[in-house]
Protein backbone atom coordinates (compact mmCIF):
# COMPACT_ATOMS: atom_id res chain seq x y z
CA UNK A 1 0.00 0.00 0.00
CA UNK A 2 2.64 2.45 1.02
CA UNK A 3 4.64 1.63 -2.04
CA UNK A 4 1.71 2.37 -4.27
CA UNK A 5 0.93 5.58 -2.46
CA UNK A 6 4.53 6.58 -2.97
CA UNK A 7 4.31 5.80 -6.65
CA UNK A 8 1.17 7.87 -6.99
CA UNK A 9 2.74 10.82 -5.27
CA UNK A 10 5.82 10.60 -7.43
CA UNK A 11 3.83 10.36 -10.60
CA UNK A 12 1.65 13.31 -9.71
CA UNK A 13 4.60 15.36 -8.64
CA UNK A 14 6.23 14.73 -11.98
CA UNK A 15 3.03 15.62 -13.84
CA UNK A 16 2.96 18.98 -12.14
CA UNK A 17 6.65 19.47 -12.64
CA UNK A 18 6.31 18.72 -16.34
CA UNK A 19 3.40 21.16 -16.52
CA UNK A 20 1.22 18.39 -17.87
CA UNK A 21 -1.64 19.10 -15.54
CA UNK A 22 -2.95 21.96 -13.45
CA UNK A 23 -5.21 19.98 -11.22
CA UNK A 24 -5.26 16.47 -9.90
CA UNK A 25 -8.12 14.68 -8.25
CA UNK A 26 -7.12 12.07 -5.71
CA UNK A 27 -7.76 11.19 -2.10
CA UNK A 28 -6.55 12.63 1.13
CA UNK A 29 -6.83 11.43 4.66
CA UNK A 30 -10.33 11.67 6.01
CA UNK A 31 -11.38 13.29 9.24
CA UNK A 32 -13.05 10.09 10.31
CA UNK A 33 -11.36 6.80 10.69
CA UNK A 34 -11.95 4.27 7.92
CA UNK A 35 -12.59 7.10 5.52
CA UNK A 36 -10.76 9.22 2.98
CA UNK A 37 -11.90 12.33 1.27
CA UNK A 38 -11.68 13.40 -2.37
CA UNK A 39 -8.83 15.84 -2.79
CA UNK A 40 -8.48 18.50 -5.45
CA UNK A 41 -4.83 19.11 -5.71
CA UNK A 42 -3.27 22.02 -7.52
CA UNK A 43 0.40 22.74 -7.90
CA UNK A 44 0.55 24.95 -4.83
CA UNK A 45 -0.94 22.26 -2.63
CA UNK A 46 0.90 19.52 -0.87
CA UNK A 47 1.19 16.50 -3.07
CA UNK A 48 2.21 14.45 -0.06
CA UNK A 49 -1.30 14.80 1.29
CA UNK A 50 -2.41 12.30 -1.33
CA UNK A 51 -3.19 8.92 0.13
CA UNK A 52 -3.97 5.47 -1.17
CA UNK A 53 -5.51 2.87 1.08
CA UNK A 54 -8.44 0.53 1.36
CA UNK A 55 -10.81 3.36 2.14
CA UNK A 56 -10.49 5.34 -1.08
CA UNK A 57 -14.09 4.63 -1.77
CA UNK A 58 -15.33 7.65 -3.69
CA UNK A 59 -15.78 7.27 -7.42
CA UNK A 60 -13.78 10.32 -8.49
CA UNK A 61 -15.22 10.28 -12.00
CA UNK A 62 -18.28 11.95 -10.51
CA UNK A 63 -16.39 15.23 -10.39
CA UNK A 64 -15.41 15.23 -14.03
CA UNK A 65 -18.64 16.56 -15.55
CA UNK A 66 -18.83 19.03 -12.67
CA UNK A 67 -15.46 20.63 -13.02
CA UNK A 68 -15.21 20.49 -16.79
CA UNK A 69 -18.79 21.01 -17.83
CA UNK A 70 -19.25 19.97 -21.45
CA UNK A 71 -15.74 20.95 -22.31
CA UNK A 72 -14.52 19.78 -25.65
CA UNK A 73 -11.72 22.23 -26.13
CA UNK A 74 -8.19 20.97 -26.22
CA UNK A 75 -6.80 24.30 -25.15
CA UNK A 76 -6.75 23.76 -21.42
CA UNK A 77 -4.52 21.18 -19.83
CA UNK A 78 -5.97 17.82 -19.03
CA UNK A 79 -7.31 17.07 -15.60
CA UNK A 80 -5.35 14.50 -13.71
CA UNK A 81 -7.37 11.87 -11.95
CA UNK A 82 -6.73 8.78 -9.93
CA UNK A 83 -8.81 5.88 -11.13
CA UNK A 84 -9.67 2.52 -9.75
CA UNK A 85 -11.21 -0.04 -12.09
CA UNK A 86 -14.72 1.20 -11.47
CA UNK A 87 -13.78 4.89 -11.73
CA UNK A 88 -12.24 4.25 -15.12
CA UNK A 89 -15.35 2.44 -16.29
CA UNK A 90 -17.35 5.47 -15.28
CA UNK A 91 -14.96 7.64 -17.24
CA UNK A 92 -15.42 5.45 -20.31
CA UNK A 93 -19.15 6.03 -19.97
CA UNK A 94 -18.67 9.76 -19.61
CA UNK A 95 -16.40 9.87 -22.64
CA UNK A 96 -18.87 7.85 -24.70
CA UNK A 97 -21.67 10.05 -23.56
CA UNK A 98 -19.60 13.04 -24.59
CA UNK A 99 -19.33 14.60 -21.16
CA UNK A 100 -15.57 14.76 -21.42
CA UNK A 101 -13.01 14.44 -24.13
CA UNK A 102 -10.51 11.67 -23.55
CA UNK A 103 -7.76 14.14 -24.40
CA UNK A 104 -8.79 16.31 -21.49
CA UNK A 105 -7.97 13.60 -18.98
CA UNK A 106 -4.74 12.32 -17.62
CA UNK A 107 -5.61 9.10 -15.91
CA UNK A 108 -3.45 7.45 -13.32
CA UNK A 109 -4.92 4.00 -13.17
CA UNK A 110 -4.61 1.73 -10.19
CA UNK A 111 -5.22 -1.96 -10.14
CA UNK A 112 -7.61 -2.00 -7.28
CA UNK A 113 -7.56 -4.64 -4.56
CA UNK A 114 -11.04 -3.63 -3.49
CA UNK A 115 -12.40 -1.08 -1.11
CA UNK A 116 -13.13 -1.99 2.47
CA UNK A 117 -16.70 -1.33 3.55
CA UNK A 118 -16.46 1.04 6.48
CA UNK A 119 -19.93 0.17 7.69
CA UNK A 120 -19.17 -3.53 7.84
CA UNK A 121 -16.27 -2.85 10.19
CA UNK A 122 -18.16 -0.28 12.24
CA UNK A 123 -20.95 -2.74 12.81
CA UNK A 124 -18.43 -5.01 14.53
CA UNK A 125 -17.18 -2.39 16.94
CA UNK A 126 -20.27 -1.94 19.12
CA UNK A 127 -19.89 1.81 18.92
CA UNK A 128 -16.41 1.77 20.38
CA UNK A 129 -14.25 4.69 19.44
CA UNK A 130 -11.45 4.05 16.99
CA UNK A 131 -8.12 5.46 17.99
CA UNK A 132 -6.10 4.40 15.04
CA UNK A 133 -5.96 2.23 11.95
CA UNK A 134 -3.20 0.09 10.56
CA UNK A 135 -3.39 -1.60 7.24
CA UNK A 136 -1.30 -4.34 5.74
CA UNK A 137 -1.71 -6.33 2.57
CA UNK A 138 -4.54 -8.52 3.76
CA UNK A 139 -6.00 -6.98 6.84
CA UNK A 140 -7.11 -3.88 8.65
CA UNK A 141 -6.11 -3.43 12.25
CA UNK A 142 -8.40 -1.18 14.20
CA UNK A 143 -6.97 0.21 17.39
CA UNK A 144 -9.47 0.78 20.16
CA UNK A 145 -9.07 2.14 23.64
CA UNK A 146 -9.18 -1.36 25.01
CA UNK A 147 -7.07 -3.13 22.44
CA UNK A 148 -6.97 -4.00 18.75
CA UNK A 149 -9.22 -5.73 16.32
CA UNK A 150 -8.02 -7.33 13.09
CA UNK A 151 -10.25 -7.59 10.08
CA UNK A 152 -9.42 -9.69 7.04
CA UNK A 153 -9.98 -7.40 4.07
CA UNK A 154 -11.43 -10.09 1.91
CA UNK A 155 -14.37 -10.44 4.24
CA UNK A 156 -14.95 -6.76 4.66
CA UNK A 157 -14.87 -5.51 1.10
CA UNK A 158 -17.77 -3.57 -0.34
CA UNK A 159 -20.31 -5.78 -2.05
CA UNK A 160 -19.53 -4.28 -5.42
CA UNK A 161 -15.83 -5.00 -4.96
CA UNK A 162 -16.47 -8.57 -3.91
CA UNK A 163 -17.79 -9.30 -7.34
CA UNK A 164 -15.74 -6.93 -9.44
CA UNK A 165 -14.74 -8.39 -12.79
CA UNK A 166 -12.46 -5.55 -13.84
CA UNK A 167 -10.36 -4.28 -10.93
CA UNK A 168 -7.79 -2.97 -13.36
CA UNK A 169 -8.79 0.25 -15.15
CA UNK A 170 -10.05 -0.13 -18.70
CA UNK A 171 -8.41 3.13 -19.76
CA UNK A 172 -5.43 4.95 -18.27
CA UNK A 173 -2.38 6.96 -19.17
CA UNK A 174 -0.22 5.53 -16.44
CA UNK A 175 -1.01 2.30 -14.70
CA UNK A 176 0.17 1.59 -11.21
CA UNK A 177 -0.08 -2.08 -10.60
CA UNK A 178 -0.88 -3.21 -7.14
CA UNK A 179 -1.92 -6.45 -5.65
CA UNK A 180 -5.27 -7.52 -6.91
CA UNK A 181 -7.23 -10.07 -4.99
CA UNK A 182 -7.97 -13.10 -6.98
CA UNK A 183 -11.66 -12.88 -6.29
CA UNK A 184 -13.70 -14.68 -8.85
CA UNK A 185 -16.22 -12.36 -10.42
CA UNK A 186 -19.46 -14.09 -11.12
CA UNK A 187 -22.27 -13.06 -13.43
CA UNK A 188 -24.97 -12.85 -12.39
CA UNK A 189 -23.98 -11.55 -9.02
CA UNK A 190 -24.92 -14.15 -6.38
CA UNK A 191 -26.71 -11.64 -4.21
CA UNK A 192 -28.79 -10.21 -6.98
CA UNK A 193 -29.29 -13.65 -8.46
CA UNK A 194 -30.86 -14.66 -5.23
CA UNK A 195 -33.02 -11.56 -5.45
CA UNK A 196 -33.94 -12.23 -9.07
CA UNK A 197 -34.93 -15.78 -8.32
CA UNK A 198 -37.61 -14.67 -5.90
CA UNK A 199 -41.20 -14.39 -7.06
CA UNK A 200 -42.26 -11.04 -8.35
CA UNK A 201 -44.40 -10.12 -5.36
CA UNK A 202 -41.54 -10.83 -3.02
CA UNK A 203 -39.12 -8.80 -5.10
CA UNK A 204 -41.52 -5.93 -5.07
CA UNK A 205 -41.87 -6.21 -1.31
CA UNK A 206 -38.10 -6.10 -0.88
CA UNK A 207 -37.88 -3.14 -3.20
CA UNK A 208 -40.64 -1.33 -1.37
CA UNK A 209 -39.15 -1.99 2.05
CA UNK A 210 -35.73 -0.83 0.95
CA UNK A 211 -36.75 2.38 -0.77
CA UNK A 212 -39.30 3.30 1.89
CA UNK A 213 -36.32 4.34 3.99
CA UNK A 214 -35.47 7.01 1.45
CA UNK A 215 -35.46 10.62 2.58
CA UNK A 216 -34.96 11.94 -0.95
CA UNK A 217 -31.66 13.61 -0.24
CA UNK A 218 -30.58 12.48 -3.75
CA UNK A 219 -27.14 11.49 -2.49
CA UNK A 220 -27.33 8.27 -4.53
CA UNK A 221 -27.84 10.37 -7.63
CA UNK A 222 -25.28 12.99 -6.76
CA UNK A 223 -22.61 10.42 -5.96
CA UNK A 224 -23.14 8.66 -9.29
CA UNK A 225 -20.95 9.69 -12.22
CA UNK A 226 -23.73 8.67 -14.59
CA UNK A 227 -26.10 11.21 -13.09
CA UNK A 228 -24.89 14.34 -14.76
CA UNK A 229 -28.23 15.61 -16.07
CA UNK A 230 -28.44 19.35 -15.80
CA UNK A 231 -31.92 19.03 -14.39
CA UNK A 232 -32.79 15.70 -12.85
CA UNK A 233 -36.21 14.37 -13.81
CA UNK A 234 -36.95 14.10 -10.10
CA UNK A 235 -36.78 17.85 -9.67
CA UNK A 236 -38.26 19.02 -12.93
CA UNK A 237 -41.32 21.16 -12.64
CA UNK A 238 -42.31 21.48 -16.26
CA UNK A 239 -43.73 18.95 -16.19
CA UNK A 240 -43.52 17.74 -12.64
CA UNK A 241 -43.02 14.01 -13.00
CA UNK A 242 -43.33 13.19 -9.34
CA UNK A 243 -44.41 14.95 -6.20
CA UNK A 244 -41.91 16.34 -3.75
CA UNK A 245 -43.29 14.55 -0.73
CA UNK A 246 -41.68 11.59 1.00
CA UNK A 247 -44.66 9.38 0.19
CA UNK A 248 -43.97 5.80 -0.81
CA UNK A 249 -45.27 6.20 -4.33
CA UNK A 250 -42.98 9.15 -4.88
CA UNK A 251 -39.84 7.42 -3.63
CA UNK A 252 -40.71 4.31 -5.60
CA UNK A 253 -41.13 6.41 -8.69
CA UNK A 254 -37.85 8.16 -8.11
CA UNK A 255 -35.88 5.00 -7.55
CA UNK A 256 -37.43 3.01 -10.38
CA UNK A 257 -36.65 5.73 -12.87
CA UNK A 258 -33.19 6.28 -11.45
CA UNK A 259 -32.47 2.59 -11.76
CA UNK A 260 -33.88 2.45 -15.29
CA UNK A 261 -31.77 5.39 -16.31
CA UNK A 262 -28.79 3.25 -15.34
CA UNK A 263 -29.71 0.47 -17.73
CA UNK A 264 -26.71 -0.35 -19.86
CA UNK A 265 -24.71 2.40 -18.15
CA UNK A 266 -24.21 1.35 -14.53
CA UNK A 267 -20.65 0.15 -13.92
CA UNK A 268 -21.52 -1.25 -10.49
CA UNK A 269 -19.09 0.95 -8.58
CA UNK A 270 -21.30 1.02 -5.51
CA UNK A 271 -21.02 4.78 -5.00
CA UNK A 272 -24.77 5.10 -4.53
CA UNK A 273 -24.85 2.53 -1.76
CA UNK A 274 -21.95 4.13 0.05
CA UNK A 275 -23.51 7.58 -0.23
CA UNK A 276 -26.92 6.63 1.07
CA UNK A 277 -27.32 7.83 4.64
CA UNK A 278 -30.26 5.51 5.13
CA UNK A 279 -28.36 2.33 4.19
CA UNK A 280 -30.64 1.46 1.30
CA UNK A 281 -29.16 -1.41 -0.65
CA UNK A 282 -29.53 0.31 -4.01
CA UNK A 283 -26.96 -1.90 -5.64
CA UNK A 284 -29.29 -4.84 -5.32
CA UNK A 285 -31.42 -3.32 -8.04
CA UNK A 286 -28.83 -1.71 -10.27
CA UNK A 287 -26.74 -4.85 -10.33
CA UNK A 288 -29.74 -6.87 -11.50
CA UNK A 289 -29.83 -4.51 -14.43
CA UNK A 290 -26.11 -4.91 -15.08
CA UNK A 291 -26.43 -8.67 -15.22
CA UNK A 292 -29.55 -8.45 -17.30
CA UNK A 293 -27.89 -6.20 -19.85
CA UNK A 294 -24.89 -8.48 -20.03
CA UNK A 295 -27.03 -11.53 -20.53
CA UNK A 296 -29.36 -10.00 -23.09
CA UNK A 297 -27.02 -7.85 -25.10
CA UNK A 298 -23.61 -9.18 -24.17
CA UNK A 299 -22.74 -5.67 -23.18
CA UNK A 300 -20.71 -4.47 -20.26
CA UNK A 301 -20.52 -0.73 -19.88
CA UNK A 302 -17.21 0.95 -19.28
CA UNK A 303 -15.02 -1.69 -20.84
CA UNK A 304 -14.56 -0.33 -24.32
CA UNK A 305 -14.69 3.11 -25.85
CA UNK A 306 -15.81 1.61 -29.13
CA UNK A 307 -18.77 -0.70 -28.62
CA UNK A 308 -22.33 0.60 -28.94
CA UNK A 309 -24.48 0.79 -25.83
CA UNK A 310 -27.54 -1.43 -26.12
CA UNK A 311 -29.95 1.47 -25.79
CA UNK A 312 -28.36 3.28 -28.70
CA UNK A 313 -28.91 0.50 -31.14
CA UNK A 314 -31.56 -1.85 -32.37
CA UNK A 315 -31.43 -5.33 -33.71
CA UNK A 316 -34.27 -7.38 -35.04
CA UNK A 317 -32.94 -10.22 -32.90
CA UNK A 318 -33.36 -8.32 -29.65
CA UNK A 319 -35.32 -10.35 -27.19
CA UNK A 320 -38.88 -9.24 -26.96
CA UNK A 321 -40.39 -11.65 -24.50
CA UNK A 322 -40.98 -8.78 -22.12
CA UNK A 323 -43.79 -7.70 -24.39
CA UNK A 324 -46.51 -9.68 -22.79
CA UNK A 325 -50.22 -9.29 -22.61
CA UNK A 326 -51.37 -7.58 -19.44
CA UNK A 327 -52.46 -10.12 -16.89
Amino acid sequence: MRQIEYEIINTVEKLFADKKIDIFIGYKKGTLSLQTSPYFLSEQDDVRKLVWNSFCSNNLAVFIPRIIPNSKSKESKPVGILCKGCDSRSLVGLIKEKQINRDNLFIIGISCPGIVDRRKILSRLDGKEIIGIDEDADSIVVKLKDGEKRFEKEEYLCESCLNCAHPTPSIYDVLIRGAVYSLQAITPDPITKDFSSKPREERWKIFETEVSKCIRCYACRDACPNCYCKECFAEQTKPQWLGVSKGLSEVIFYHIVRILHQAGRCVDCGACVRACPMDINLRLFTRVMVDEVKERFGYEPGISLKDTPPLATFSADDKQEFMTEPE
Binding site: P38, V62, F63, A219, D222, S245, A275, P277
Partner: peptide, 28 residues
Protein backbone atom coordinates in the same frame (compact mmCIF):
# COMPACT_ATOMS: atom_id res chain seq x y z
CA UNK B 1 -13.85 29.35 -4.43
CA UNK B 2 -12.36 26.09 -3.20
CA UNK B 3 -14.37 24.68 -0.34
CA UNK B 4 -17.27 23.49 -2.40
CA UNK B 5 -15.31 21.51 -4.93
CA UNK B 6 -15.80 18.08 -3.51
CA UNK B 7 -19.37 18.82 -2.47
CA UNK B 8 -21.76 16.64 -4.44
CA UNK B 9 -24.73 18.92 -3.82
CA UNK B 10 -26.84 16.26 -2.17
CA UNK B 11 -29.20 17.02 0.66
CA UNK B 12 -27.82 14.77 3.36
CA UNK B 13 -26.32 17.51 5.55
CA UNK B 14 -29.41 19.70 5.42
CA UNK B 15 -31.91 16.89 5.80
CA UNK B 16 -30.13 15.36 8.77
CA UNK B 17 -29.35 18.72 10.34
CA UNK B 18 -31.58 19.41 13.34
CA UNK B 19 -31.71 23.14 12.67
CA UNK B 20 -32.05 23.32 8.89
CA UNK B 21 -35.63 24.21 8.23
CA UNK B 22 -35.98 25.32 4.63
CA UNK B 23 -39.08 24.08 2.96
CA UNK B 24 -40.96 24.12 -0.28
CA UNK B 25 -44.69 24.52 -0.81
CA UNK B 26 -46.31 22.63 -3.67
CA UNK B 27 -49.71 21.42 -4.74
CA UNK B 28 -50.50 17.79 -5.38
Amino acid sequence: GKLHRKCLGCGICTYLCPTCHCFDITDE
